[in-house]
Design a protein around this nucleic acid. Structure first.
Lengths: 249, 249
DNA sequence: TTCACGGATGTTGTCGACAATTTGACGACA
DNA sequence: TGTCGTCAAATTGTCGACAACATCCGTGAA
């Protein structure tokens, strides 16, 4: 073997992928709430878990921090970013507007490939609904829903909006998981979500910007209503108020 | 000297500030176009310039990369992010919308402290106009204009919009510098910009959301028009078309 | 002359080690 | 008993070093 490639072991990662792997893994676990908000992430521990030094771990944490998914406390441990309930109203406003603009632009600027991708995403969403219903696990549905809206937003053809919308949807995934952990069954049946998406696809296909905008807005408003209701209903009863900062007024 | 503090030298940075200093410095130089788009940034060189190891340099570069200000080419050098002219239309759309929403919300949600900060920023902007005119240097004006709009957007009270708008304004700073490098004198006098800002402040003070929205939109539209004209006028003549990807049609 | 190949060179990705700082506990004292 | 000061453990921020990868240049052959 005179080959100069350095692949000695079996699962030896090719150079440069270390940080990316850790980043993806942590990001997934954070968004799925497998790592709970506020949980500590020490670099040495992560270094032993993924078999590598602290340098790739550090790089992954820095990238996660600049996306707001973790918080690096200087000279102390880095923690999974807590979900700040006071920011929820702002968040819902932002999600609403970005969903409107991306879906509206999608109706205007899409091409045939975009439509195909959207229909595929919708197909996967329909399949995930059955899986979620059968196994009583909301994770597949949440992720497929994320994929659907990202497919629509991609058709808008504006990277700036897409990037921002993706960040909002990421944070939304955490909230949705939180939502389904407390309340297993949704008030609305899954069929309604499916038909909402179908209506959206129809509007986009017909290049009906106003219609897509309105459906996106209504979609966001429903999410907002469900989430706010969920918060006022189940959180105020259980939550410990002692460590909750009071409103500055 | 029994003091256990580790400050041996004179300008010894206190622990943990290394990466932040490098980040701020590079960010400033990138946004002011002192580092030109496409320029290479090798870690060892930066390590010698700021007197430190490659670790803080690397951290700063990673943070800059996740904000889109530099691009890390795997196993190769990292370069200052090029200004993609094809993305300009998307950028201008995004800037327009985010300026509208932040300035509109500012009119609704501001409090007295916000108004004070806005007026201060406007005062600094007026001062910077004189400096820029006297010294024929557009940098102070551009930076003060940035500060003014950030002050307005801060009054909107929505961190999500603020973060996104800041990122857009950052990229806009680079374009503005580019603009003024080619064309020293603006078509519109500085007084018009000043009065635009005054009108905006008046609308915000009166909590006139529609008015603030309209002024923000007009402001963005003027920037858009000037920049597009600048691009078609002075770029098409000089620019090398060989490495410019052609439109996919 | 042009193209392919191989070594030299420089830069990045990763590693282990050390110093500074925080955190928590333990014990002394009012 | 409650509070403060000191000490030890643990974790981070930084450093220097090495290996892998990419680029560049020179040599040889078609």
């Amino acid at each position: 073997m005179t080959k100069p490639t350095g692949k000695t072991g079996s699962d030896q990662r090719s150079r440069g992928t270390g940080a990316a792997i850790i980043y993806d893994a942590l990001r997934d676990e954070i968004l799925r709430l497998q790592l709970r908000p506020g949980e500590a992430l020490d670099e040495t521990g992560l270094g032993t878990r993924f078999v590598c030094s602290r340098s790739p771990v550090r790089e992954a944490l820095i990238r996660l921090a600049s996306e707001g998914l973790v918080e690096i406390l200087p000279n102390r441990s880095t923690i999974v970013a807590p979900i700040d309930l006071q920011r929820v109203p702002s968040y819902l406003d932002a999600l609403d507007l970005m969903q409107r603009i991306t879906h509206r632009l999608a109706a205007i600027a899409h091409d045939d490939a975009d439509l195909l991708a959207i229909r595929e995403a919708q197909h996967r969403f329909a399949g995930s609904l059955e899986v979620s219903f059968a196994e009583n696990d909301s994770v597949p549905m949440i992720e497929a829903n994320y994929g659907f809206h990202m497919a629509v937003a991609s058709a808008a053809g504006n990277d700036y909006f897409l990037t921002f919308y993706r960040r909002l949807l990421d944070e939304g995934r955490r909230m949705l998981h939180l939502h389904f952990i407390f309340q297993r069954r949704d008030d609305r049946g899954p069929e309604d979500l499916l038909s909402d998406h179908e209506a959206l696809i129809a509007a986009i296909t017909e290049r009906d910007a106003e219609g897509a905008d309105a459906i996106a807005h209504e979609h966001a408003a429903q999410f907002k209503g469900r989430f706010m209701e969920f918060m006022t209903r189940s959180l105020t009863a259980d939550i410990d108020l002692s460590n909750m900062p009071r409103r500055a007024e």
